[in-house]
Computed example of a mutant assay.
Amino acid sequence: MPLTKGQLTTFADAHLGESVCEVSPRYLAGPGDARHVTHALATAGWTPRSDPLAPTVALDLRERSLDLAHDPQSLTAAWRLRSQPHATTPGWFTEFGALVPAEIISSVIDALIKPPPSRWHDPFAVLARAGWRSQPAAAGPAAGSRTAQSPDGLCRVHQSDLDRWAPGSFWQIETTAPEDDSVIWRAWASGSTPTHLVSAFSAALCDPAPLHRLKFARLGHRSVEQQPSALTAEQFVEAHTARIASLRTIVRAQQRPDRALPPLPLANRGAVASAKARR
């Protein structure tokens, strides 16, 4: 079911006339508006499957065996995005805690909607360019793992194994409180998750730009920096509408007979070879 003009109007009505703040670091900005995620999926043709009177949201794209569930009452896995396995490709999943900002999750959604990139991007290279520090690899069975930490030490990205073919390989991202290192939120991705999706999440995570929140919105932690934004609520709504319009253009281009969407690449070196072979 495509996104309707009425749904965009409802989004606008919830923001117009409100004061907008800039919040940083962005990974502690709080959940934000879930419609950053759901509006993009509806634009890409995903179908709602949930009870409209229930607090949960479920959408799927059956022709690609993809589904998303959002349960705002779950603290550990408020968002679950999954791809079912096929004969030649493994399934994969990602999960995000309740306080993961919707804008960061939506970076994964946008990467899922757009055609996969032709080049393989290492998420750790993305983080390193943003000044995140690599931590020494653990000894013993975890010797192949990698970890990167934000400059303020509050956010970490960890991959369990350098060999992406190895059973049990996974990604874990977590943010912690500055006062006691307690976990604020976690996110996970299976090792078979397409690497460009993990890279998109990493890029959104380490972006130094603040996120925008309404003045009394729920935040991720009391230590975040807030200041009035030069962005008006009207401009905030316009930016959301422009993003949706851009995604709609991409989806329509993919629906042309000569621009069929290629299958998602695997999260391994074989995916690069497959992508090159298709070009």
Rank of each mutant, 00 (worst) to 15 (best):
36 H>V: 10
161 D>L: 12
61 L>A: 05
63 E>K: 04
260 A>F: 02
116 P>Y: 01
216 F>S: 09
87 A>C: 02
165 W>L: 11
96 F>P: 00
213 R>W: 03
158 H>T: 12
175 T>R: 12
179 E>P: 04
73 Q>C: 10
201 F>R: 10
63 E>F: 01
45 G>A: 13
252 R>G: 00
148 A>N: 03
154 L>N: 00
158 H>F: 15
93 F>E: 11
252 R>F: 04
5 K>E: 07
170 F>L: 12
213 R>S: 04
206 C>L: 04
161 D>H: 15
230 A>S: 10
188 W>N: 15
270 G>T: 02
187 A>N: 02
121 H>A: 07
158 H>Y: 15
196 H>L: 08
180 D>M: 15
171 W>S: 00
111 A>R: 06
46 W>Q: 06
271 A>Y: 00
174 E>C: 14
78 A>V: 08
42 A>C: 04
189 A>N: 01
14 A>W: 06
44 A>C: 05
66 L>K: 14
118 S>G: 08
114 K>D: 09
45 G>W: 12
67 D>Q: 11
183 V>L: 13
73 Q>N: 13
11 F>C: 12
34 A>T: 11
103 E>Q: 09
239 A>H: 07
13 D>E: 12
240 H>L: 07
45 G>P: 02
121 H>P: 00
134 S>A: 13
2 P>S: 15
199 S>P: 00
118 S>C: 04
